[in-house]
Amino acid sequence: MSASASEIIDPAKVHLWDRGHHGHDVIGTRTFGFWLYMLSDAMIYAALFASYGVLSHVMNMAGGPMPGDVIRPGYAFGETLALFTSVLAYGYAMAALRQGRAGGVAGGLLGAMIFGAVFLGLVGKDIGDLFAQGITPERSGYLSIFFTLVIYHALHIVVGLLWMLVMLVQLVREGFTGNVVYRLVNLKLFWHFQAVVWVFVFVFVYLQGVIA
């Protein structure tokens, strides 16, 4: 303890109340909370990846398609390229934010949205082709977790695009207010996080599937 009863305290010199308190660092607090949210989302992904590990035994394919039959490296390559370019464009928006250029931020957001949409289109085409061949989640335990993992990631991309759209509108209407800035920072975290998760999807689902 920093003090005991034997110490003699001069009440005039002790700092007891924080007069002129001007609140907390709002942007820092909001961003910290968003990190925590992403931790919980990371746990969801972790549980899904663990389930993928459990359900990718040959028993779980129930005589149906094997990883080699459902994974097409060309699509995975294109999706990776699109998503990483989108993250790069978002990085450009953040550089513009630091310089306070609203036009640069809007341009970066638009670029990120376009490449995000390209990513979604590729994933959609990939999954659509598989469905057309009769390769669906109901076929086996392995396909259930394969599609769940890929579609859960794609849903995040949909949410990210919607969020970018909202931010574009708010940026135009309100400019760089505290709310807009912290949301842009949080969206950066979110978007980079989806790219990081995609690295894991690519390695554990696509790369490993091709090797197997």
Binding site: L55, N60, A62, P137
Partner: peptide
């Protein structure tokens, strides 16, 4: 109708 925990069809 997926097969995550079903007794057959590759569930666990």
């Amino acid at each position: 109708g997926t097969h995550f925990y079903t007794a057959g069809m590759g569930g666990n």
